[in-house]
């Protein structure tokens, strides 16, 4: 199936599944927004009204968005990624407001694909313009609409090894986690986590395994780093229950462990779900299994979950 056919099929599918706002229209969020934008107009608070331009805020993903399956823009992005149009830039966002929202109203948004035009030659490279139409509803009443256009383009030079993220609306803030500094020596590891593989550096000369990786083998001196894919199992070598101070992108407390992999190397990662089942469940020697936490298109973190021999947690 070519891109035009895929685009037509996505367009024919019409509205994707509705996304409901996490919270009803509320005063704290309105105040934050007004403050952030420096809008001192008293009428919103006085009239219990939300500024119309806030409409996207009500249905934003949280810091850790769930899967966007069923979203037309995500689906189209996958098609274009696979065809090599892996980079993305937002080009247009036109919004129309039908009425002001009131405190307590529950909003949901539906999106459909309006158009996919390409391939076009642009200053950034060859690409496709994809336009989606989003409508916000209160019940069955449409309160605002948005035409949102992105350019998915083929980056100049060698193609990116990794697919870009599904395009997000321009107002979405970047996910607040600390990102690793990636060097030419360590890129394979992060490429691996994005691809769902836990990669361990292996010397191409003597076969020694090593983590964290580097350009040279401390055992034999060879400058021939390769990697193997780990089984993804190991046990807790040590761990920390972090209570204070706050850490970007994490709710307190959380558990970080030093895991000794079955292959023998150690690596640091969060123990997922510890707050739910109780941090006291973690212990040195506990078996764990790797999981991959996709932060966004640029970063996937390796993490661990206790492997319960009695069954799934």
């Amino acid at each position: 199936m070519n891109i035009t056919e895929a685009a037509a099929r996505i367009a024919e599918a019409g509205d994707g599944s509705p996304r409901r706002g996490r919270d009803p229209v509320n005063l704290p969020m309105i105040r934050n927004w007004l403050e952030a934008l420096g809008d001192t107009n008293p009428r919103y608070e006085a009239g219990s009204l939300a500024p119309p331009a806030m409409v996207q805020v009500w249905t934003m993903h949280g810091l850790h968005p769930a899967s966007t399956a069923g979203d037309p823009l995500s689906a189209m992005s996958v098609v274009l990624d696979e065809a090599g149009f892996t980079s993305v830039v937002a080009t247009n966002s036109e919004q129309a407001y039908h009425r002001e929202l009131r405190l307590g109203e529950q909003v949901e948004v539906r999106s459909r694909q309006r158009d996919a035009a390409g391939p076009k030659r642009t200053a950034l490279g060859e690409g496709w313009f994809v336009t989606t139409e989003s409508t916000w509803y209160v019940g069955t009443e449409a309160v605002a609409t948005m035409l949102f256009r992105i350019l998915k383009y083929r980056p100049p030079g060698p193609p990116e090894p990794l697919p870009s993220p599904p395009a997000a609306p321009p107002a979405a803030p970047p996910v607040d986690v600390l990102r690793p500094v990636v060097s030419r020596d360590t890129a394979f590891f992060w490429d691996g986590t994005a691809a769902g593989e836990l990669r361990i550096q292996r010397c191409g000369e003597c076969g020694a395994l090593r983590h964290p990786p580097g350009p040279a083998c401390p055992e034999c001196g060879a400058l021939k780093p390769e990697y193997v894919v780990a089984a993804g199992t190991g046990e807790v070598y040590s761990y920390v229950v972090h209570h204070h101070p706050p850490v970007p992108g994490r709710a307190l407390p959380f558990v970080v462990a030093l895991v000794e992999l079955t292959e023998g190397v150690r690596m640091v990662g969060e123990i997922l779900g510890a707050r739910e089942f109780g941090v006291g469940e973690v212990s040195i020697g506990a078996p764990v299994r790797v999981e991959f936490v996709r932060v966004d298109g640029e970063l996937t973190l390796p993490a661990w979950r206790l492997a319960d021999p009695e069954g799934e947690r």
Binding site: P180, V181, E270, L301
Partner: peptide
Amino acid sequence: ASMPTSSGVDNGWTYPMGL
């Protein structure tokens, strides 16, 4: 966590994981 140095790369094995 973001130093463009070997130390920054080293910190990439702990800071993003929450340590």
